[in-house]
Simulated assay, not measured.
Amino acid sequence: MSRELTYLITEENIGTSPLTIHGFLKGRGYSHAVLVSLKKTPEGILKNGVWARVHDTLSPGDRLLVRLAEEKTSDHIVPRPLPFPVIYEDEDLLIVNKPANMPIHPSQGNYENTLANAAAWYFCQKGESFVYRCINRLDRDTTGLLILAKHTYSAALLSRMVTVRKIHREYLAVTKGVPDVSGIVDAPIGRKDGSTIERQIDFVHGETARTHYELLTSEDGYSLVRIWLDTGRTHQIRVHMKYLGYPLPGDFLYCPDYTKIRRQALHSYRLSFLHPISQKPLSFTASLPDDMRAFFSASTLEQL
């Protein structure tokens, strides 16, 4: 993988004090690790066509070229021909619509059935180097949109955007029962005693968690709800909706009702953010999967 970025230095960039290449790139979100890698890359940084050092100073009119060259690959991830629906791809990132029953990362007992294995196969077929960098996360059985970074710089920028909540995510969930038309759940979440994975509402030791929801439709005792988050706690949607009294059917931890679905009825359906490098507004949607559509008649869904 090779990615080149060019910057034309202006008076505004320089300001009133001397500006080094290091300072300029740090100001654009280049992490320490990326800068170290650039220093080790032959002609990784060119100023006006000449190989430059990060501590060289810049002047108005200088043209800076940054070459991100990456030849290593995630050798420990076994390529496997698994579903890998690509919604969008450019030089910097991928948007993928993750299927159900697919963990994001390899782990004990899940070495060859993950999104990482699917990504490795995808890039192998393209003949491109591959380092797995999944930016946001979804539970194994939650479907929907995920971001993968294609190089170290976009990974650093996107990870920062997640931290400062500059990536807006919306979910669709099916709930048992009919909640209010809209509302906010503001209740801290903590680990349940004796469990390594289960969470619960914990007003003493839990971490702040805030969930917004909007009722879209209901039918035969089930509802379709739009959800967005102010925080990103583990199992936040699943725990908060159970706390409200409207759990997600098919959820083996919080509502093991498999009458109509065999996994938690939760789907990451929209991602909106500014492209980390071009700053172009991006927005993606992934339609409701069939197993969640099955809760409602076609006529009900057509009204949404």
Rank of each mutant, 00 (worst) to 15 (best):
A100D: 12
R28Y: 00
A298Q: 15
H168S: 08
L94F: 11
F24V: 04
S37V: 07
V66G: 14
K176T: 12
R270E: 09
D186C: 13
F284P: 00
I14T: 10
P106Q: 01
P83D: 12
K39F: 04
R293T: 09
F273Q: 01
S37Q: 12
W51T: 09
Q279G: 04
T234G: 03
D251A: 02
I189K: 09
I104G: 14
R63Y: 11
H32C: 10
Y171D: 08
E214K: 10
L138Y: 02
L172F: 13
V204A: 13
A52C: 14
T259K: 07
A69K: 06
R140Q: 07
S37H: 07
S272Q: 10
R160K: 15
S154T: 08
G206L: 04
V185L: 04
L94Q: 01
P276K: 04
A120R: 00
D141L: 03
P247L: 06
Y254C: 06
I237W: 00
L58M: 15
E70Y: 12
L65A: 15
I197M: 12
L271G: 09
G61S: 05
P18S: 03
T57F: 13
L94E: 05
R226G: 03
I147V: 10
R133E: 08
E4V: 02
T300M: 12
R226L: 11
F296S: 03
V239I: 10
Q303S: 10
G29V: 05
G221R: 05
A52D: 04
P249H: 14
Y111G: 10
L46D: 01
L253P: 11
H151V: 14
I135F: 08
D186V: 11
H32K: 08
A33L: 07
K192C: 10
Q108E: 15
D193E: 14
R137C: 04
L82F: 15
I184T: 15
L65S: 13
H205V: 13
L19F: 02
Q236L: 08
R169W: 07
L271H: 08
K280R: 14
L172P: 07
L304D: 13
H275I: 06
H105C: 14
L253D: 11
G23T: 01
N101R: 15
E219K: 00
V86A: 00
L25E: 09
Y132W: 14
Y269T: 01
N97H: 06
V66H: 05
D257P: 09
I147S: 02
V239S: 05
T57M: 09
I87M: 11
A265L: 01
N48H: 06
D56N: 05
N13M: 05
L288P: 00
P85R: 13
M102W: 11
T143L: 03
D257H: 04
E128S: 01
S223I: 02
K98E: 02
E11Y: 09
D251S: 07
L224E: 04
K166E: 14
E302A: 13
P81D: 00
G232S: 08
L244M: 08
V36L: 09
L301G: 04
V181T: 13
R80Q: 15
N101C: 09
R67N: 10
F130P: 05
I45F: 00
